Computed example of a mutant assay.
Amino acid sequence: MNTKILMTSSALFLAFIGILLSFLPNEMVEYLNVEPNIITTLFLKIMSALYLGFGILNWMAKGTLIGGIYNRPIAIGNLMHFGVGAIALVKIASKIQSHSEIVISLTAVYVIFAILFVYVFRTNPTKTQK
């Protein structure tokens, strides 16, 4: 599997969410009908930093071999993020009543990335010929 496509797409996805949370935290709070206060905004900005950090990590690692023993911390970190996120989203997807389209879309993306990172983690990489 060419991990460059996986790492690039996950980096762009994570950066997109990070930028949204960083620059539009008040709008996100309002859209999601959450009580706006300083703690909510602070948590969204901290989450933004996490998403942007993971996004830049994936972007910078996109050209390296990933899988098996190569860059194992990057593979397992992504697997944990997307795997745990997918489990949490799947548990909530059937129960949520408002903004279900957002939760179902995020669930699909997280499940796909989790499956792909399981595959990367479990297989040895092959170097592509240029």
Results as ranks from 00 to 15, higher is better:
residue 74 I to V: 11
residue 1 M to L: 09
residue 38 I to E: 09
residue 44 L to D: 08
residue 23 F to T: 06
residue 36 P to T: 06
residue 14 L to G: 03
residue 116 L to G: 00
residue 111 V to M: 14
residue 114 A to N: 03
residue 62 K to A: 14
residue 115 I to V: 12
residue 32 L to K: 11
residue 44 L to G: 08
residue 79 L to I: 02
residue 81 H to N: 10
residue 37 N to Y: 09
residue 110 Y to R: 01
residue 79 L to H: 00
residue 74 I to M: 01
residue 129 Q to T: 14
residue 67 G to L: 06
residue 127 K to D: 04
residue 87 I to E: 02
residue 82 F to Y: 12
residue 23 F to M: 05
residue 107 T to H: 06
residue 63 G to C: 00
residue 18 G to A: 09
residue 124 N to Y: 10
residue 114 A to K: 00
residue 57 L to S: 07
residue 91 K to I: 15
residue 89 L to S: 15
residue 1 M to Q: 10
residue 109 V to Q: 05
residue 28 M to S: 14
residue 83 G to S: 11
residue 93 A to W: 05
residue 88 A to Q: 14
residue 3 T to H: 05
residue 61 A to G: 03
residue 78 N to E: 08
residue 17 I to K: 04
residue 11 A to F: 01
residue 83 G to Y: 04
residue 98 S to M: 07
residue 104 I to F: 13
residue 79 L to E: 02
residue 117 F to I: 00
residue 124 N to Q: 12
residue 85 G to V: 02
residue 35 E to Q: 00
residue 94 S to C: 09
residue 18 G to S: 07
residue 93 A to I: 12
residue 120 V to C: 12
residue 99 H to R: 13
residue 117 F to S: 01
residue 130 K to G: 13
residue 121 F to M: 12
residue 23 F to L: 11
residue 73 P to E: 03
residue 73 P to N: 03
residue 123 T to M: 12
residue 29 V to S: 11
residue 52 L to F: 15
residue 24 L to G: 02
residue 59 W to D: 03
residue 16 F to K: 12
residue 112 I to R: 02
residue 107 T to W: 01
residue 80 M to N: 14
residue 29 V to R: 00
residue 91 K to Q: 15
residue 29 V to W: 04
residue 128 T to L: 15
residue 128 T to K: 14
residue 64 T to I: 07
residue 94 S to R: 11
residue 39 I to W: 10
residue 18 G to V: 08
residue 54 F to V: 04
residue 55 G to V: 06
residue 34 V to Q: 06
residue 106 L to D: 09
residue 62 K to C: 13
residue 14 L to R: 08
residue 119 Y to E: 03
residue 113 F to M: 08
residue 25 P to Y: 09
residue 121 F to Q: 11
residue 118 V to S: 05
residue 124 N to F: 08
residue 117 F to Q: 02
residue 37 N to V: 08
residue 34 V to N: 04
residue 74 I to W: 02
residue 45 K to E: 06
residue 56 I to Y: 08
residue 100 S to P: 03
residue 38 I to K: 06
residue 124 N to A: 11
residue 106 L to A: 15
residue 43 F to D: 12
residue 45 K to M: 06
residue 19 I to E: 05
residue 14 L to I: 06
residue 126 T to H: 07
residue 47 M to P: 07
residue 6 L to A: 03
residue 67 G to M: 09
residue 46 I to E: 12
residue 117 F to A: 01
residue 41 T to G: 06
residue 69 I to D: 10
residue 52 L to D: 11
residue 38 I to A: 10
residue 107 T to G: 07
residue 81 H to V: 08
residue 110 Y to M: 11
residue 119 Y to V: 04
residue 51 Y to K: 05
residue 61 A to H: 05
residue 7 M to G: 07
residue 103 V to A: 14
